[in-house]
Simulated assay, not measured.
Amino acid sequence: MFRTLPFPFPDGRFPRSLGAVVQRTVAEGALPALVVAHDSEGCWLIGDGVNDPNEPGACAVYGIVHIAEDDPTLHETAGLRPGFAAYRDGPGQPWSIEPFAYEDEAAEG
């Protein structure tokens, strides 16, 4: 599993070998993915949009394709450019795209 891969992805879908930092609540199916971020360094993050992903043990690295198998709408975000995030209000809702920066980066800028 790789942390970053050449982007854009050839078929517009997440590659099998791409890993992402995913909140356990999403990975375990307790909550839906409401946030997908592609940070400026090329890393991918998937969160529930509710709980603090910075809490100890809140996240782990998973194959992003495996997460998308449970929620195929995540593939809609595979074209997200670095430095942007997709947000939605609930499963099946449309994604809205916004610039993304970590809190400490936003405070510096």
Rank of each mutant, 00 (worst) to 15 (best):
D70M: 08
E76L: 14
R81Q: 15
A107K: 10
G79H: 07
A30D: 13
A78M: 10
V36T: 07
F7D: 03
P94G: 07
Y87V: 13
A33G: 08
R81N: 08
G42F: 06
G90V: 01
D104R: 08
W95V: 07
P82I: 02
I67T: 10
G12K: 08
G90T: 02
V61G: 00
R81T: 11
P10D: 10
P8M: 11
E105R: 07
R13I: 05
I64V: 15
P53Y: 11
V35P: 03
Y62W: 12
P82D: 04
T73A: 15
A58T: 06
G109Y: 09
V22P: 00
L45Q: 11
G49M: 08
Q23C: 09
L34D: 02
N51I: 00
F84A: 02
V26L: 06
F2V: 04
N54G: 14
S40M: 07
T73G: 08
I64Y: 01
S96H: 13
R13M: 06
S40F: 03
R24N: 15
D39C: 07
H38Q: 10
A85E: 15
R88D: 08
G42S: 06
E98W: 11
S96N: 09
I97Q: 09
L74H: 05
D11H: 12
V65F: 01
D48C: 13
G79T: 05
H66Y: 09
G12T: 07
R24Q: 11
V21D: 03
D89A: 14
L74Q: 06
P56I: 02
T77E: 08
P6L: 09
A78Q: 05
E41P: 00
I97K: 10
G19P: 01
V36D: 03
V36K: 01
P10R: 12
A37L: 08
Y62K: 01
F7A: 12
H38D: 08
A101V: 02
E108M: 07
Y62V: 02
G109S: 12
E76P: 01
W44K: 04
H38T: 05
A33I: 01
M1A: 13
F2D: 10
G42K: 04
M1P: 09
H38C: 12
R81H: 12
G109E: 13
D52Y: 03
V65H: 06
V61S: 10
D70G: 15
N51V: 03
S17F: 00
D89R: 13
R16W: 04
P56M: 02
N54E: 13
D89P: 00
E41G: 09
D70F: 09
G49F: 07
A27L: 11
R16K: 12
E41Q: 13
G47C: 06
E103H: 10
N54S: 14
P32E: 05
I64L: 15
T4H: 09
A101L: 13
N51D: 14
A30K: 15
E55V: 09
P72T: 08
V26Q: 06
G47Y: 03
V26H: 06
L34Q: 10
E55A: 15
E55H: 10
R88Q: 09
A30F: 08
L18T: 01
L18V: 04
G47Q: 04
G57Y: 03
Q23Y: 04
Q23D: 04
P10A: 15
G63R: 12
Y87L: 15
L18Y: 01
P91W: 02
L34K: 09
